[in-house]
Write a protein that binds this DNA or RNA. Structure first.
Lengths: 313, 313
DNA sequence: GCGCAGCCATGCTTTTAAAGCATGATGAAC
DNA sequence: GTTCATCATGCTTTAAAAGCATGGCTGCGC
């Protein structure tokens, strides 16, 4: 109520007068007539109830109150200007916060180059990365705590309400310890693998693994026996290393896992490890998120990988 | 140019809509018609060039940009309001900074109670105290680094351009070590003191001391021999203690110095140690400074001291 | 499925207030 | 004392915000 008709105009005008220390010159700079300026500044002083300027026939001087108010007015004006710039930057995808989930090994080829390109394109966006297991990613996308995720295509159930955009596909390999019988073969057939014991991921955290398994080995038929379920990549490697069984992994896994294991191509398999962008169908897509996706697509196309791309099956 | 006709009104209106999530209700709360509100918010969005709200026939929702701008708008409005309050507080003497100089012993009775009363009356004023020698006070007042000082009445030369308001006057005493011949007398006459060696202050820093000396002992006549000049109270006490001479000090000095010395009243002396407020004649007197002076006067009147007050000579 | 209610936008008018113009008052400098 | 620059005041013009009436959209309930 008390200052309800103070406007930024008053601050702009007062600031101009305080800088010029002269109404006439300030009015010229503002491109308005001097009496209009005088009146607006008077209105401001009336509103505050304090004299901000001492008028004299040779110009004006600031009172102590005027000095204080000048600082505040400048600060406020700058703040408003910055607010507008921020909002515009946000709209252009160059400001804000971006919550990105990712599955570490599958995103190995895509995320690091995309992050560095994005950092160059939008340095004011704060990217928050979340290294999560498959189903933690889908739930994060659903509840909105993640805006997008770079991950393996989710299973139908957990992927409901999400859209998935495939960027890369990788053929499957069988991982085994050095000296394993299968290592004598050049490639392993689906049927041959069905006879092996399998070191798998935990169903709870990696339902997409079971989607793939179901797809390669449709339920009633024979499939590898699951010897143990692991909660992550490193335990998977260890379990295979100590001979609990073989692993069914994608090409990209090899690069992530290093040389502790031996790999053989799963030869007659039409299924691929599909890696791409997952997003909630109805979630707000921020411009920053959109921009990040564009960069991911570009990185994916221009990538130096030898692996097949979506179109080249 | 780009946001030169954005006004606080736009921020107020947008904030109201963002809070009500409904133009109609927000308009009612603002006591304006709904179309006026719609148009102002539209103007704001046009100005920024970004959609802040998503309209639907059942209300509005904030876009991500809208959320960001809402925070900024609230912040700006609060800032403006605070600025006005600060300026008003400054005008009332309840805000700002107050540079006060003081001479430690003479202000002993006045300053501590005044400071605590002022602190209670104007807690937001930052009081900066400067413990300085006599002539440092006067120069500080002249150059504007001090707004006021509680001190002994300055000499004519150094006090030019300053106004002095006497608050208290104290009779003079002769300070001497225990066992000094003068200590056998009940009081010391001016003539008797003229025969003694005097431990004085440095002329450079304490010209008012010499003003007083000249007043008690007008120049051509006899006066105490100055044995040594000291740069402060503690060295004065020490020099007297070790027998270099006696000191000419005021009643208030005793309380500051404690019981290391013995004091005898200077009996037939019309001169007093005058303590009060010194200010620059043309300097800006801030309301806080004015207020502090009022409190000083009140403290001085209501003080419990046994010393004479200005009127009661 | 259709009408109704709630909500927001648009077109036009009215009202408010800012801007402009002419002039007057003031005090410092010459 | 005159002059000049500077700010204030009175009145008019202009611009913009507010108001009013209305129309269109959409979701909900009958």
């Amino acid at each position: 109520m008390m200052n309800s008709d103070m406007e930024l105009r008053h601050l702009r005008y007062f600031t101009a007068v305080a800088e010029a220390l002269n109404f006439t010159k300030a009015a010229a700079r503002l491109k308005i007539a001097q009496p209009a300026l005088s009146r607006q500044v008077q209105d401001l002083e009336d509103e505050i109830g304090v004299d901000l300027l001492k008028r004299s026939p040779r110009g004006v001087t600031l009172t102590a109150e005027g000095k204080l108010f000048l600082e505040e007015a400048r600060d406020t004006l700058k703040r408003v200007e910055d607010a507008v710039l921020k909002v515009r930057a946000l709209a252009r995808g160059e400001y804000g916060e971006l919550q990105i989930g990712y599955a570490p090994s599958p995103s190995l080829e895509l995320l690091p180059p995309a992050l560095s390109a994005f950092r160059a394109a939008a340095p004011s966006v704060k990217v928050v990365l979340h290294d999560l297991a498959g189903d933690e990613l889908t739930s994060g996308l659903h509840d909105g705590s993640l805006e997008l995720a770079v991950m393996i295509q989710p299973s139908l159930e957990s992927g409901a309400g999400l859209e998935f955009e495939e960027l890369r596909r990788y053929p499957f390999y069988v991982a085994m310890p050095a000296g394993h019988p299968l290592s004598k073969l050049k490639t392993v057939t689906v049927e041959r693998l069905a006879e092996e014991a399998l070191v798998a991921f935990r169903r709870l955290d990696y339902s997409e693994y079971y989607r793939i398994l179901d797809s390669i080995y449709p339920p009633p038929g024979p499939r590898p026996r699951i010897a143990v379920e692991c909660d992550g990549v490193s335990s998977l490697i260890t379990e295979i290393e100590i001979g609990k069984g073989v692993g069914l992994v994608s090409e990209i896994f090899q690069r992530a896992a290093g040389k502790r294991l031996v790999y053989r191509r799963l030869s007659n398999c039409q299924e691929f490890h599909r890696v791409g962008i997952a997003r909630s169908i109805k979630g707000d897509v921020t411009p920053a998120g959109e921009r990040f996706c564009e960069i991911l697509r570009k990185v994916s196309k221009s990538g130096t990988s030898k692996s097949a791309r979506p179109g080249s099956v």
